[in-house]
Design a protein around this nucleic acid. Structure first.
Length: 291
DNA sequence: GGACGAGACCGCCAAG
DNA sequence: AGCTTGGCGGTCTCGT
């Protein structure tokens, strides 16, 4: 499955099914319930159709810690989901029909969140991996970041920030470093404030008083990504926020302020990242953000 | 959408 | 010995 093709095909997440295999970790389950299962429409967050699914609906599933959950829907519920969160690895003994079921929905165009273990998460300090339509989180608390990332991707940064606030979580804009590194941390602070400037490797290395090679190496150790990829990500986010918050701002102007050398380049990255043009993005999300 | 020049990335290795 | 640094250069990705 070509990720690019799949990303374009993927539908916006409005309908979420949490799939429970034999048993799950309570915290992980709570994350999905918190992000997708609460009604925040009064705060401008879109309504999610949310259901907990198991092979045998109505049968209570015991969770560690003395909790019990009783899924109300069966596997047929997966067919209407845009997003299927597999709450914990289904062992072959636990539910042989789950893997084919998930694969079938994946082929249909649904997205899937997996706890690590299903697919190898390559050596990567980042806490989750976005390989739309497959999302892999490295651990329970990383699932929070992953869910918010997904919400931001589909519904805009403002919506994700609203959900994060209501969960008393720092919005996913200032991610903690996977490995602490003061030099890199202050470089990131500086770069965030200078996204409209030239942020080539050469420039950043000079700013951080490091050689290009050391910058590259320590950057990856600290952030899990490369300097260029990180800068690009921040620029897309900035452009995204500008488009959401400043309705009068032209795409040309937004591109310039976010550090893109042309509006064409911004369009290219928007298409790749969101599957739509900046103008389409604004038309979809701008009405949601109210001062 | 394809070609091509520029720049980024990263394995390797010697040096600190 | 164990670890970090920085230069080199092949390869790949990006922007135009």
């Amino acid at each position: 499955v070509s990720p690019v093709f799949a990303a374009v095909q993927a539908r916006i997440v409005r309908n979420v099914a949490v799939l429970i295999p034999s048993t799950v970790r309570p915290f992980e389950l709570a994350v999905y319930a918190e992000v997708f299962g609460l009604d925040r429409t009064a705060d401008g967050v879109p309504a999610f159709d949310y259901a907990v699914v198991s092979e045998r609906p109505g049968v209570p599933v015991p969770l560690p810690g003395g909790l019990t959950i009783t899924p109300t829907r069966g596997l047929d519920r997966l067919a209407t989901a845009d997003l299927i969160a597999v709450a914990s690895p289904p062992s072959p003994a636990a539910g042989p029909s789950l893997v084919p079921a998930v694969r079938r929905e994946l082929d249909r165009g649904a997205r899937v969140i997996l706890a690590s273990g299903h697919f190898p998460v390559r050596d990567n300090p980042a806490r989750f991996v976005d390989e739309d339509p497959i999302f892999t989180s490295a651990g329970t608390s990383a699932t929070i970041d992953l869910c918010l990332h997904l919400v931001a991707k589909d519904h805009g940064a403002a919506v994700a920030a609203t959900i994060a606030r209501s969960m008393l979580i720092t919005p996913p804009h200032a991610p903690a470093l996977a490995r602490p590194d003061d030099d890199i941390a202050s470089l990131l602070d500086w770069a965030i404030g200078n996204l409209h400037e030239d942020l080539s490797i050469e420039v950043m290395a000079r700013q951080a008083l490091l050689s290009r090679r050391s910058l590259a190496r320590r950057f990856r150790a600290a952030t899990g990504t490369t300097p260029y990829a990180w800068v690009l990500e921040q620029r897309v986010r900035l452009a995204q926020q500008l488009l959401e918050r400043e309705p009068a701002l032209g795409v040309e102007e937004a591109a310039g302020r976010a550090g893109f050398s042309s509006a064409a380049l911004l369009r290219q990255h928007f298409q790749r990242r969101f599957g739509c043009s900046p103008t389409q993005y604004r038309a979809r999300f701008a009405p949601l953000s109210r001062g």
